[in-house]
Design a binder for these strands. Structure first.
Length: 434
RNA sequence: GGAGGGAUGGCAGAGCGGACGAUUGCGCGGCUCUUGAAAAGCCGUGGGACUUCGGUUCCCGUGGGUUCGAAUCCCACUCCCUCCGCCA
């Protein structure tokens, strides 16, 4: 959530910043009013509480002095004030709850880098990359053998079995076979090793508490997007960002340890409630997919460099894999709620002829850290400071898989995979018909 | 799932319902002594909210309750440890 003090001191600036992402001014004003009410009620309650405590002290003194009549009179007054204090406390709590609910629903302020815009159509393509570009090669020409959608290639080669996946779990739950299954495993191993120099490998749980989902901003706003296990009140994570961000929830870190960087591969679960019927062919949009995620805690000063590092690591993988991609700066209207800035990497899929998001590198400033209460103690002294959180996929395999299969398809129908995966594929970089 | 034990500051570990936001030790920071260091000694060392900057208030796993007053008493829950059962 955003800083309520900033809202209090400069509501105009907050309203202006949030207007860039479509939040009505009235909503900001409502939160400001809730804050004023909550503070007024807190003061009232604390004043009563102070009187009760003072009377309690006097009771003890009167008893000590052996004056039980005076003590009884004080007890009676204190009891009366105690009832008032209880009522005042309930009112204060109501107001604070309303304020918190409202604050949790306010999205983050967009960063300076973030361009204006209402939706995906206003995002800005920053650059493109394709194999051989540095050597002056023109953008790739794709042959007819590459213009085959991955679901057809997958069926042809017996490495993707969407029908049987649907039999087990319903549509949009993919099932990979043979070299297709091994490819996912190879990609995960390859990426984790690539990041191992600077990012600690974590294997987190994939079912998490409501608090864990709330810390990253996935709840309460996006409850419809999450799979929820009612019986145990647990949520299936939509991304490893969720458990990684909460790793140090409620803790105070040492500045010397920052930035702290983590890497995890997990299954990710998304209901895709708002996208029913869209992009349903093949692997374009699935309810479950594997993804390697990079996540970092940093100081405000370190954050831009960490954002750049995560982006360049994701790009390095794409380049290693020989995939054609572009880098997109998201506009204010297309940012997810918690993000201040997001850069998407979109890979080109020749078989379906479109760029498709495979990584989303985001900087949250202290928005998530405030929800999660993650701070660091400044080396120079002074009170603890909220960390900045950042994360990015590197990468989402359910979209890299199609890109590799379509890009690598050869005229004879076999698929050639990039050499960098050879060590993880037992040297078998060509997938042929069974 | 059953039985028992536990949860207090960075760590260890005290804490008969009233002077306890908390004894003490370790750690950490500063100072004295010293050429320097060690040792010794002295001082200081949690977090949050509100504030008219004087203060006020909250936090002893979490949430309720009893009481004029709760770290302390009661109830529920969570987590950790030990043993039993089950199991990959």
């Amino acid at each position: 959530m955003i800083d309520v003090r900033l809202l209090r001191e400069d509501p105009e600036a907050v309203a202006a910043a949030l207007a860039r992402r479509g939040v009505a001014r009235a909503e900001v004003e409502r939160v400001v009013a809730l804050d004023a009410l909550a503070r007024q009620r807190l003061r009232a309650q604390e004043a009563l509480r102070a009187q009760v405590k003072e009377l309690s002290r006097q009771v003890r003194e009167a008893r000590g002095a052996g004056d039980s009549d005076a003590a009884e009179a004080l007890v009676a007054r204190s009891r009366e004030l105690g009832h008032q204090e209880k009522a005042a406390a309930a009112e204060a709590e109501d107001a604070q709850g309303a304020l918190r609910d409202a604050l949790l629903l306010l999205p983050n302020l967009p960063s300076e880098e973030t361009p204006d815009g209402d939706g995906p159509e206003d995002n800005v393509v920053v650059r493109r990359w394709w194999p051989g570009m540095e050597a002056g090669a023109p953008p790739p020409e794709y042959g007819p053998h590459q213009r085959v959608p991955h679901w057809e290639v997958g069926q042809e080669l017996g490495i993707l079995d969407l029908e049987r996946g649907a039999r087990l779990s319903g549509s949009m739950f993919p099932l990979y076979r043979r070299a297709g299954a091994r490819l996912i495993r190879a990609l995960s191993a390859y990426a984790l090793e690539h990041h191992a120099d600077a990012y600690e490998e974590i294997r987190p749980p994939t079912l998490v508490l409501t608090d864990t989902m709330t810390a990253t901003g996935h709840l309460p706003r996006f409850a419809d997007e999450g799979y929820h296990v009612e019986r145990d009140d647990l949520w299936a994570i939509p991304t490893a960002e969720v458990p990684l961000t909460s790793l140090y929830r409620g803790e105070i870190l040492d500045e010397a340890d920052l930035p702290m960087r983590f890497c995890a591969v997990t299954a990710c679960f998304r209901r895709e409630a708002g996208a029913a019927g869209r992009d349903t062919r093949g692997l374009l949009r699935t309810h479950e997919f594997d993804k390697v995620e990079l996540m970092a805690y940093a100081t405000a000063e370190q954050a831009p460099a960490v954002h750049a590092d995560i982006t360049s690591r994701a790009e390095a993988l794409l380049q290693d894999l020989g995939l054609h991609y572009r880098v997109v700066e998201l506009c204010a209207g297309d940012l997810s709620g918690a993000a201040a800035r997001t850069v998407d990497l979109e890979v080109y899929l020749p078989g379906v002829d479109r760029f498709w998001e495979v990584s989303s590198v985001s900087w949250y400033r202290d928005y998530q850290a405030r929800r999660a209460n993650i701070r660091y103690r400044p080396a120079a002294g002074g009170p603890p400071v909220l960390v900045h959180t950042l994360n990015g996929s590197a990468l989402a395999w359910s979209r890299i898989w199609p890109a590799l299969v379509e890009t690598g398809r050869q005229p004879d129908g076999s698929v050639r995979l990039p050499d960098c995966l050879a060590p993880y594929l037992g040297g078998e970089t060509v997938i042929r018909r069974p």
